[in-house]
Simulated scan of single mutants.
Amino acid sequence: MKIYTKTGDEGTTGILGSKRLRKDDARIEVYGTVDELNAAIGFARALVMESTEDDVAARVQDELFTLGAALADPDPQGPFHNKISDEHVENLERAIDDFTAELAPMRTFILPGGSPAAAQLHLARTICRRAERLVVHLAHLPEEDVPSTLLIYLNRLSDLLFVMARTVNHHAGVADVPWISKK
């Protein structure tokens, strides 16, 4: 099987169902950003973290594939449209709580950095925030149906990625980088 189909050569791409959209469509932009987020998390995993963080990151990568499929499925009755559930959000919240329990309370704002894996998780967090903004945009377009759990999931995920970055630094014996205002 060849990887190229040539069906996108005119600037369109297929989504679930038989519909084709322009490659700059808001729906394509948002699930492309979710794909970018998934790749950023994959890169963080390649930079070595402990098994607990890696296991959570692997689960999140799988869920992001599902979330991308939900975004590629504009039909409210479609097979993927509502696959991200409150349970997925609750799992993120449990992971946030578990990681936070290991950390000293924050006394300052934290700059992205520290160990390579933590810095990459901070980058993934910023991509997640962009995906979140794009979901909000898509949800407000006329005739678009976007399940609210997708937005909630991405909002929680950005919090998780922040806490995971701090946890990865903690486990690596690397201090978070505090932001100190230069007045």
Score class of each variant (00 low, 15 high):
M1E: 09
T7E: 14
D9S: 09
D9F: 08
G14Q: 12
G14S: 15
S18M: 06
K23M: 14
A26F: 11
R27S: 11
V30P: 07
E36I: 07
L37E: 00
A39N: 12
A40M: 10
G42F: 02
R45D: 04
A46M: 14
V48P: 01
M49Q: 13
T52H: 13
D54I: 09
V60Q: 05
D62Q: 11
L64E: 02
L67H: 03
L67C: 00
G68W: 02
A72M: 06
P74E: 11
D75H: 08
G78C: 04
G78E: 07
F80G: 00
N82L: 09
H88T: 02
V89G: 04
N91L: 10
L92A: 05
E93C: 04
R94Q: 10
A95M: 05
D97W: 07
L103A: 07
P105W: 03
P105Q: 13
R107G: 05
F109H: 05
L111K: 07
G113C: 04
A117E: 02
L121A: 11
A124H: 02
C128D: 09
E132L: 14
R133T: 15
V136E: 15
H137R: 15
P142L: 12
E144I: 11
D145I: 04
V146A: 12
T149G: 01
L154D: 05
L154V: 04
R156T: 05
D159R: 12
R166K: 13
T167A: 11
A172F: 02
D176I: 06
P178T: 08
S181G: 13
K182H: 11
